[in-house]
Design a protein around this nucleic acid. Structure first.
Length: 566
RNA sequence: UGUCCUGUGGUGUAAUUGGCAACACGUCUGAUUCUGGAUCAGAAGAGUUCAGGUUCGAGACCUGACAGGACAACCA
């Protein structure tokens, strides 16, 4: 029995440092053994892959220890926030596979309590109204290396402060005329402790409270208190809030009336190479129409990745893989791409499609005959069954799969060589047809009828297998190829391109006339496919019954390119 | 020239709290294959930023450097 205990302890032991903190707290009986986290986005933009890390961490940690996670909108700045963002955030968190049940909160739910708490601080002589303008206050704040100056308003009486604060609330002053500040320490080496501003006047209607308020609490004056009132035990945030922690704790000390206290823990935010993650820049791209919207498949937003063909599982696995630390670094997107490929490889329906067609005439194949070939839907998963692919005298193959003068190590089709058409026949190139400019217009091949299905009874081998689509029995589609998200660190060869310019010129390639096997006619929006040998694709939401549109989620690994480069 | 945080293969993370640095991605071999994918087998690649110290023994502890990051919004 004691062995079992030891064993289960070993299983629970995590190398995630936040999990370790939680485990210690659990062990020491802190907060009555509760684990309660929250995901607190500001509704001022769409969620991106960086938020996904935080979502997985917050929800994941609570799940692991039998706790709960709240969704809370940090909506203390009405000038930047909007319900459009609130809705998209909820959709994205749900899509990622997490649930907050009925625990949906807003910082604005607490505006009354926050106001009362501010009044208490004033009564305790710990907060005061400052009449100086922003510039003066900022100058008096000093610099990180020089202490600040005491405000002349700091010694106002409690009565006067109370009166002024009420009048602020009543709307008697203009924006910028008065602020409420905490009385802490103007000489603190930590800038955030130099009498931080608690409330400012903003005559902007709030997306939830309308024009009820004209004073709004600052982040620091709201966040910890909301945590406290919601019973949050572990308040997980990113590294830049580390210096805010003493202030967070200062407010909690003023508030707490029991053993319980929330604890702020910081971790390093996600950075991905070749990926713009700044909310400001993403907003710019959307506003200036460099992209089609927040869900443009080039965007690193959750909805962009979704439209691009990423699965929630792949993003969650990615979050697990990168781990959680306080070290700031740059994660290679290859890790993200590996995570989608790994997931899609298991679930994606295989299909043949030709992106860059070259016509092939099988000269010894009878005209007008449609030969139905059986193809496996997923070689990794027999339960996905098979389908029929029509084979005809004229077909398309990928331009890249034929070379008139093949370099060494080129295994595919060239004059005189034999290759296999996947699930169909062996073919041999007999003739190359060119126009007057010397451009190849089509090639002629012969097939070996005995190799039907893809194997020759005489056991002879071919160097490679290529994909193909019937030139008469097919579906025409538009295919959109996106570059790897896009780039802050420019990919080689784009070093002096502004990233927005890169978006316009290099990041999207539209192939209007691609041929896909007929199977795909019934595809639904966001269905995932693997185009054999090409990559993973999904059906874009722009698709109509008349015109199918595919996005490329991610390419398959391409070792031929490497061979060429050598 | 302040305070706080962080330095482990190319990249992201581990190392049972002091016991010969492990895993994943990436890279490179080989096998296999009706995807130059996937799978399987294997290899290369760090002696843990540096210098001292404690110790039989340090990536872990101590001291001091050095490097990077955060903080001076009435943003979050």
């Amino acid at each position: 029995m004691s062995e079992n205990v030891i064993e289960s302890e070993n299983v629970v032991k995590s190398n995630n440092f936040i999990h370790q903190i939680v485990e210690e707290d659990l062990k020491s009986g802190k907060n009555d053994g509760r684990v309660h986290t929250r995901f607190p986005p500001e509704p001022n933009g769409y969620l991106h892959i960086g938020h996904a890390k935080s979502i997985c961490l917050n929800f994941g940690t609570a799940q692991k220890y039998g706790g709960l996670t709240n969704l809370r909108f940090d909506d203390t700045n009405p000038s930047k926030e909007d319900t459009e963002y609130v809705d998209s955030i909820m959709e994205d968190v749900r899509w990622l596979g997490f649930s907050w049940d009925d625990r949906l909160f807003y910082a604005s739910d607490y505006f009354d309590k926050l106001f009362d708490f501010a009044v208490k601080l004033i009564r305790d002589g710990k907060a005061y109204v400052d009449d100086q303008n922003a510039e003066t206050i900022s100058q008096q704040k000093g610099t990180p290396t020089r202490p600040g100056l005491i405000s002349p308003m700091r010694s106002r009486s409690v009565e006067e402060n109370l009166d002024l604060f009420m009048r602020m609330k009543a709307g008697e002053f203009n924006e910028g005329q008065r602020v409420l500040r905490a009385k802490i320490d103007m000489a603190s080496p930590n800038m955030h402790m130099r009498d931080p501003i608690l409330y400012r006047i903003m005559k902007t209607p709030h997306h939830r409270t309308g024009d009820k308020w004209c004073i709004y609490p600052m982040y620091d004056f709201a966040h910890g208190q909301c945590d406290y009132w919601e019973g949050i035990t572990h308040s997980i945030c990113t590294l830049e809030f580390e210096v805010h922690r003493p202030l967070y704790d200062w407010f909690i000390d003023e508030l707490k009336d029991s053993e319980y206290r929330p604890r702020q823990i910081e971790f390093s935010r996600l950075n991905l190479n070749y990926t713009v993650m700044s909310k400001r820049k993403l907003l710019e791209l959307v506003k200036d129409n460099h992209v089609s919207g927040w869900d443009d498949p080039r965007m690193p937003t959750i909805c962009g990745l979704r439209r691009r063909g990423y699965t929630p599982e792949s993003i969650r696995n990615f979050a697990d893989r990168i781990g959680v630390t306080k070290t700031d670094g740059i994660t290679d997107v290859a890790l993200l791409e590996y995570s989608v490929r790994e997931d899609l490889n298991k679930r994606a329906q295989r299909v043949m499609g030709v992106l860059n067609p070259l016509k092939v005439v099988i000269t010894n194949c009878p005209e007008g005959v449609v030969d139905q070939m059986e193809a496996v839907n997923n070689p990794e998963d027999a339960s996905m069954g098979t389908r029929l692919v029509p084979f005809t005298r004229e077909i398309y193959i990928e331009c890249d799969d034929f070379m008139e003068v093949p370099p060494k190590k080129f295994y595919r089709l060239s004059p005189g060589t034999e290759v296999r058409l996947r699930y169909a026949y062996f073919i041999t190139c007999t003739n190359v047809v060119k126009d007057e400019n010397g451009e190849i217009t089509e090639i002629h091949c012969t097939y070996d009828p005995a190799s039907r299905g893809g194997n020759s009874p005489d056991g002879r081998k071919v160097k490679s297998t290529i994909h193909w689509v019937s030139a008469t029995e097919n579906v025409e589609a538009e295919v959109r190829l996106y570059d790897r998200l896009f780039s802050d660190e420019e990919p080689d060869g784009h070093k002096d391109l502004d990233f927005k310019e890169f978006m316009n010129h290099e990041s999207l390639q539209v192939l209007p006339k691609c041929y896909i096997e007929p199977f795909v006619k019934d595809a639904k929006v966001l269905d995932n496919f693997q185009f054999e040998r090409l990559g993973y694709f999904n059906v874009d939401q722009d698709s109509t019954p008349e015109k199918l549109v595919f996005n490329r989620t991610v390419q398959l690994k391409d070792t031929w390119t490497k061979v060429q480069q050598k």
